[in-house]
Design a protein around this nucleic acid. Structure first.
Ligand SMILES: [Mn+2]
Ligand SMILES: [Mn+2]
Ligand SMILES: [Zn+2]
Ligand SMILES: [Zn+2]
Lengths: 142, 142
DNA sequence: ATCTACATTATAATAATTCTAAACTGTTGA
DNA sequence: TCAACAGTTTAGAATTATTATAATGTAGAT
């Protein structure tokens, strides 16, 4: 989603009422250069601290899920104990930094197309995603 | 872990006291032909219903995490809302059936080795795992 | 048999998420 | 323009998964 676009229009296009809470959340999520990976907690903090916007927690959850359903956000499973969301809704792979708990997008050139030779009868493949877990390289005892 | 092995010995080997709760959990987890993928709830149900073994929920959590730390179990992140564990602790890929919420192991021949061309300075790769989400193929409107 | 460190248990506490029901607001069309 | 309605927000309660607490029990050693 480009910078400075009209979030009111965007929301209307998918049938979401452009309430001020939703518009503010769009600003936080999409007025940025790069993909944003976040937890609900990250988002609540950004809204209250950086944006000075008091939004009830229930609304943050509701809105995130509304955005997810409309294709504005994608949920990423990295850690069974917390939900991560991604403003990059296309199919893509991730690095996960186990030290900082940060997600990093891969692009096409980082990982070759995965070829799946297994087939499950009656089932179709919905997605194929790779997760590369990394951590600091601290056994350099030269 | 092979069938009918001596769980008491196995537990001692890694420094876990073979209490009756732990041995019973070993039986449920490892006396089976194939890899077992489960949630804590699945395991509690099996213990109480099938094995007629009353074990406190805290013990099930404690023991699962003790087994995880000792390399008897591996946690799998599939769904941010629930923890899945796997008796197959080797590096391997999965299919996840979104209809039944079942995990299926891939073997070597199912997916080629993944080549990672991205490098993050100061970080080493801990694991590379693929998750293939599948669901029933219901758009056969011939 | 006794001792001690570790394990189990019931229960309370915490954390993430969802529900509820009342108040509020964007949109529509008279 | 503005009443009416449907959809939205909200505070707070409820629910669910998980972890902590502290008393009791037990495996393994002597
Ligand atoms: Mn969710
Ligand atoms: Mn866990
Ligand atoms: Zn991403
Ligand atoms: Zn597995």
């Amino acid at each position: 989603m480009p910078k400075n676009c009209n979030f009111i229009e965007k929301l209307r296009e998918v049938g979401l009422r452009p309430t001020k809470q939703r518009v503010k959340m769009c600003e936080v999520l999409y007025n940025r250069e790069k993909t944003f990976h976040f937890t609900i907690n990250d988002l609540v903090k950004l809204l209250s601290e950086k944006m000075n916007q008091k939004i009830s927690l229930a609304t943050v959850y509701n809105t995130v899920h509304a955005f997810e359903k409309k294709g504005y956000l994608k949920e990423i499973s990295i850690d069974s104990h917390k939900s991560y969301f991604d403003t990059n809704t296309s199919a893509h792979h991730h690095f996960f930094d186990e030290d900082t708990h940060e997600l990093i997008d891969c692009d096409e050139s980082d990982i070759d197309k995965i070829s799946i030779r297994k087939n499950i009868t009656g089932k179709k493949i919905n997605s194929v995603e790779v997760l590369v877990r990394v951590a600091s390289d601290n056994q350099t005892q030269k």
